[in-house]
Design a protein around this nucleic acid. Structure first.
Lengths: 210, 210
DNA sequence: TTAGACCGGTAACCTTTGTTACAGAGATTC
DNA sequence: GAATCTCTGTAACAAAGGTTACCGGTCTAA
């Protein structure tokens, strides 16, 4: 059995289920920037993350985009779950934030496992719960926070997932994720730099005391 | 068996499950304005709506509030689901928008039914999916729409759930739901009135061509 | 090595939304 | 019926954020 599977999911899934996953799941490797799912796509399999990070974002008809949250190892995409089961189109976009490995589970197994394995049901419920909470966090940010606070949260989040204080990002990329504009982000970053919270370099930002 | 149960849920749940629900569920009647769940509450049972409307809103530490969506007959609260199963505290507030009847299902049954009844699992999955979609709609509104568009959507939503073109609302109440201020809402409503889209009366708004 | 693309800094200006303050018109209470 | 409360209208101002425009530095490909 694959090492990473047991290490990450050994405490989550019961042994029989782990074995089934090991037999059935297909390993997939994606490169940073690869688009896994786009709005309107039909989803035919469900991902379990082994490592790396996937960025989940929302996009409307006019092409406006907004970061919702990041998926990390040991997690799955709740949106995909519903889309799989109900054969809906995807309402979100999933892009690899860095090189990422995942296990792909075919849709058909989901229904089967839901009746067969309690640990699977719990995993699915927890995933839903976690995703809902993340989306609520997003709502809090957008509705109740100013852009400068959102920017700080964003940088902290990035620090966490990259495990590095040096973020390789352009101002335009940040603006896209926060659904703002480059000029505004530059303005706010400059303000944070003046407060000695970070240092702006070309193509990267060094976090000091954010 | 209760008429309303079979009428609303007869196509959703399989017969054996319907019977179990009929035996176990407790009917509860709430008045408009009653608070069903508050942030931080522990949830010990799950509601199935028979009629009426429940308003679900988000509130942060500083007391800022924002309407998320309305629950109507035949629906349940996905947030409650996760809270029940995982014994988390509630992250949302639920208030009866009008007099409402619900069936309360004890938490313990949920796990049992999830393994026993496919129709129950499907119902739960669908609920999750629908709620997630509603929350995404909220995000779209907040992130991508101006307040005047959000106001119009809000009035349309209210028209739908009350099934009436005359909405009994004060400007302050609207401001609370949209997390804005009374003055701003009055301003925008006046603008809509000048466009002959509605008529403002004391304590109510008559929709014309919204 | 030069043209063009990309990146960030900055100023000026505009729009949207929020805030404060005050006034008048119902409605309610005593 | 006077006092008070609630609801709405409106003006004046402030703040946040978006837009446009221009500049100079850096990188890259021809």
């Amino acid at each position: 059995m694959q090492n990473e599977l047991t290490r990450l999911y050994g405490n989550v899934f019961q042994p029989e289920l782990l074995e089934e996953i090991d037999n059935i799941a297909v390993k997939k490797e994606v490169k940073a920037g690869d688009v896994l799912i786009n709005i309107g796509d039909y989803v035919r399999s469900m991902p379990l993350l082994l490592n790396g990070v996937i960025k989940i974002s929302r996009r409307n008809e006019e092409g406006n985009e907004l970061l919702l949250y990041f998926l990390e190892k040991g997690e799955t995409c709740a949106m995909t779950l519903t889309c799989c089961v109900a054969h809906h189109k995807s309402e979100i976009k999933a892009v690899a934030e860095m090189d990422t490995e995942l296990l792909m589970i075919p849709v058909q197994k989901m229904e089967e496992w839901s009746s067969k394995y309690k640990s699977w049901r719990n995993f699915v419920f927890d995933s839903y719960h976690n995703r809902l909470m993340e989306v609520l966090q997003s709502i809090d940010s957008i509705a109740f926070s100013n852009l400068d606070e959102r920017l700080v949260k964003y940088l902290q989040e990035k620090e966490k997932i990259t495990e590095s204080k040096t973020l390789h990002l352009t101002h335009q990329e940040i603006a896209n994720d926060l659904h703002s504009s480059r000029v505004v982000i530059s303005r706010l970053l400059k303000k944070l730099e003046n407060q000695h919270k970070l240092k702006i370099q070309r193509n990267s930002i060094e976090l000091l005391a954010v």
